[in-house]
Computed example of a mutant assay.
Amino acid sequence: MKNSTTKKFDVLGISSAVLCLIHCLVFPLITILPIGLSHNHWIDLLFASIGIYAVAKITKNIDSKSLRILLWSSILLITACVIITLVFHYHSNFIYLGALGLILGHLINFKNHKH
């Protein structure tokens, strides 16, 4: 049961990180078009919250210290970038590194599950 629950959180984490990465890459291009869209920073905060939840649930059940460090450092980097965006209205490119770290960490953890 524990193994299948962890897999679900890995899928949640991977999905959230991929959607966040797509959002961060594509949305600035869409705002160039004159269709009246503006960037909503609360969406970034929602992705970061989902990521924190998934990482917290997963890291309770993994033994690999390096994987734990990868997941937590990636989500902290994303959260810091979101906070910087909310406070200073500056979009840091480090958010892409955090999203890639989360995707990689979740994929490694997902692959390490015993069938």
Rank of each mutant, 00 (worst) to 15 (best):
N3Y: 05
T5K: 08
T6C: 11
D10K: 00
L12M: 10
G13F: 05
G13Y: 02
S15F: 03
A17E: 02
V18M: 06
L19C: 08
I22L: 15
I22T: 11
C24A: 07
L25T: 13
I32L: 12
I32P: 01
L33F: 14
L33T: 14
L33I: 15
L33N: 08
P34S: 13
G36C: 12
H39G: 04
H39Q: 14
W42D: 12
W42E: 14
D44I: 00
L45V: 06
L45N: 11
L46R: 00
G51E: 13
A54M: 10
V55R: 08
K57L: 08
I58F: 01
T59Q: 11
N61Y: 09
I62H: 11
I62L: 14
D63T: 15
S64L: 14
L67G: 03
L67T: 07
I69C: 06
W72D: 00
S73T: 15
L76K: 01
L76R: 01
I78F: 13
T79R: 03
C81G: 09
V82W: 05
I83A: 14
T85S: 04
T85F: 07
V87F: 10
V87Y: 08
V87H: 01
V87Q: 05
F88M: 04
N93S: 10
L97Q: 04
L100R: 04
L104H: 05
L107D: 01
L107C: 06
K111Q: 11
K111R: 12
H115P: 04
H115N: 09
